[in-house]
Amino acid sequence: MKKKDFLIAGAVLLLAGVLTLVLRLSGGDPGGAVQVKIDGKVVGTYALVEEQAVPFDTDYGHNLLVIRDGKAHMEEADCPDHYCMEQGEIEKTGETLVCLPHKLVVEVVSGESSDVDVVAK
């Protein structure tokens, strides 16, 4: 390896370090996020630390996912049964909100670990 190689390595490491620092300072630990799948395809990942309302409008219909206080819930849905809106709030890894008619699944990924593997319901 030559001198300038180390320059590259050093520069990248420095950048990585600074980025980590900036991310830490700006948003704290990114922590948990929810992943949204429609018909089996991942359409987005949203951090739980950030308060946000994300609409999903597909051929199946409309859903509005709201993230507040580190938890996610379904605020609106134009499906016939509205079970997705009744499924409460999710925050722990593996927990899901499912809107069957719209084939939409919201699942917590890399969140606070749950003390159960699955919930029977």
């Binding site: 990248v12 490491l13 950048l15 990585a16 370090g17 980025l19 980590t20 991310l23 990114p30 996020a33 987005g44 990942t45 949203y46 951090a47």
Partner: peptide, 13 residues
């Protein structure tokens, strides 16, 4: 999603 930027440091290394 800008959240992906969180992966950047790991990906750089």
């Amino acid at each position: 999603t800008i959240q992906l930027a969180g992966y950047l440091p790991v990906l750089l290394v």
